[in-house]
Nucleic acid binder design. Sequence first.
DNA 1: TGGCTTTTTTACCATTTGGTCAAGTTACGA
DNA 2: TCGTAACTTGACCAAATGGTAAAAAAGCCA
Lengths: 207, 207
Amino acid sequence: MQDSAPAATPKPSRIQRRNRKRILDAALEVFSQHGFRGATLDQIAAEAGLSKPNILYYFSSKEEIHVTLLNALMDTWLDPLRRIDPEGDPLEELLQYVHRKLEMSREFPRESRLFANEIIHGAPRMGPDLETVLKPLLEQSATMIDGWVAEGRIAPVDPRHLIFSIWATTQHYADFDAQLQVLMEGQDVLEGASAYLDTLYRRLLTP
Amino acid sequence: MQDSAPAATPKPSRIQRRNRKRILDAALEVFSQHGFRGATLDQIAAEAGLSKPNILYYFSSKEEIHVTLLNALMDTWLDPLRRIDPEGDPLEELLQYVHRKLEMSREFPRESRLFANEIIHGAPRMGPDLETVLKPLLEQSATMIDGWVAEGRIAPVDPRHLIFSIWATTQHYADFDAQLQVLMEGQDVLEGASAYLDTLYRRLLTP
DNA sequence: TGGCTTTTTTACCATTTGGTCAAGTTACGA
DNA sequence: TCGTAACTTGACCAAATGGTAAAAAAGCCA
């Protein structure tokens, strides 16, 4: 398919970029706090400092905003897993993965909740991405970990459940923040989490 | 305050009990699937096999149904933690706790998602319960575990983060089921999870 | 069975909400 | 500076939704 015709996406203007970003920022805030159905375009508009029809000038529907956020999220989200170096020291690579994931819970709690919310409700808008992006990456990582186990460089462990547990334990600190705030009022939760998870996975994986 | 006057709650009739139960069952299904805002009274009514006004004859509002579910849930939810025997063998008690929690994810995934949804959105209807019920129980359990550590009966560990990680890893299997179905199609996920978590916490806690 | 209470339904209402439209207003290249 | 395209807005709409009112139906007990 030649690209001699003018591009389908003519290249966004300065205003386009600025406002689309504002909208996505606002939407992330609102969606992550209230969920898809719980969020209203009016809330997003208010948060973005734009009028509702103006928002629909940049995105054709509420759903399109949500999907855009979800898609943009996937890459960031999986980055730590992709950065595990198959040539590195297995234990240290996996521990670094844990710490990077935990760091994401600190830096991007809204993204974490957005994602969690989507999955809890059956991933109605993410099914394809899970299959085509997440699954191959999981399989590839599992194979790598299995290799490390076979070489005796880490203790025997089910690689998939290992990864699930890392997701669960790290994302928990973002997704269940409201609960943790009540239970650990004042304390630096993430600090303790970091030390604890380091111990947890070190003891699990040390051969 | 004497109770000579007729009881404030005159005692529910047979029909009352049956229909309230139907409604709560239906609401659990719908709320856990779509969240509070995402669920409609019409959906709940259809699921319960009753008309919408009839539902509002038994519960004064959508919110009251939700709160009723949440309150009923708390006790069931914390039961496994309460059943840890301070006099038992520490390692086995904690491992049994893990397995009981995992079993709840298998038996009550809807309840788990209902709870997760509430917390993710800032626990707007559970704040008090977290403070008055969950927190004291967490503190009590933490003290018990600290005692076991001090006696050298389990390896040194932060008791609160230990409990958080047990919550996270076990509830993950209910809350993120949609994701796991895609990633582990066909396989018996809970089976593998049970074995993995046993290993994980055994290696962490064995002195 | 008759009469009273409990339960159920039909019809309806007010508000919220996602989305449209046509008329402005602003930016910007020629 | 002028014209055109890009952007913004106020007014509006239809559907969905939580909830109400009053009448009809069903239970229940003397």
